[in-house]
Simulated assay, not measured.
Amino acid sequence: MKFESNRSKINSGELRVPATFYEYRPNEGTLPGEDVKHILFKCFVRVDEIYKSQLEQAKANNTLHDVTVTMRDPLDTYMPDEKHRFELDMRGYKGKHFDIKRVQPDSKNFGYLTLIASVQS
């Protein structure tokens, strides 16, 4: 008897959306806000579907967009954290910098990370 797993496997063909990760710094001088300090990492990600419950959660959190992305674990090259932001080169998301809210290993796919992020309103 052969054991077969029901796990969903991600293949590299699903990582189609270019993403750029940034580090920010406060604006110099008296102007409020932040500015891009430098680019930390570039890779391809998978943008997961947005469900109605996620839209309701975004409204409750006072955010414009909540998004869940999956990326290949870059190991020692780069580790995303809550201080970083990223931009997706995809229609509908271009020009929006997402604040990372949570980074966790993908429980279904070893070697991948799941990022939950939002754009504040």
Rank of each mutant, 00 (worst) to 15 (best):
D81E: 11
D99K: 13
I100E: 04
S107G: 10
V67T: 06
R102E: 12
T70E: 03
G111C: 06
R91P: 08
P105C: 09
E82A: 13
Y78I: 06
P80V: 05
H97T: 07
H84D: 05
S107K: 12
P74R: 04
E87H: 00
N62P: 03
E49V: 11
A117W: 00
V103G: 09
T68P: 10
Y112D: 05
E82V: 15
K101N: 14
N62G: 07
T114N: 10
L88Y: 02
N62W: 10
D66W: 06
T77S: 11
E49W: 02
L64E: 12
E87R: 00
Y78H: 06
M90H: 03
T63K: 14
I50D: 06
V69D: 01
V69L: 02
H65K: 15
P105A: 11
T68K: 15
I116K: 15
P74S: 05
H65V: 14
T68D: 08
N109Q: 13
P80A: 13
H84W: 00
K96W: 04
Q57C: 12
G111A: 07
M79R: 15
T70W: 03
V103Y: 08
G95Y: 01
D48P: 05
Y78D: 04
D89S: 02
K83W: 08
I100K: 11
Y93K: 01
H97L: 11
L75Y: 08
G111L: 04
P105V: 07
R46L: 15
K101I: 11
P80W: 06
R85I: 03
L115G: 06
I50S: 10
E49M: 08
T70D: 01
E87A: 02
G92V: 02
R72I: 13
G95H: 05
D76V: 10
K52Y: 11
E82M: 08
T70G: 02
E49G: 08
H65P: 02
L115I: 08
D81S: 13
V69N: 03
I100H: 07
L64T: 08
L64P: 01
V67I: 14
T70S: 07
G92R: 05
K52G: 08
K59W: 07
S107I: 12
T77C: 08
R85P: 00
F98D: 01
T77A: 14
H65L: 13
Q57E: 15
E87V: 00
E82P: 00
T63D: 12
V67L: 00
D48H: 09
M79L: 11
K94T: 06
P80Y: 03
Y112R: 01
L75V: 08
G95L: 00
V67F: 02
D73T: 08
D99Y: 12
G95P: 00
F86G: 04
L64G: 07
G92K: 07
Q54E: 15
N109Y: 02
P74A: 02
S107E: 11
T63H: 09
A60M: 11
D81P: 03
K108P: 03
P80F: 00
L115T: 04
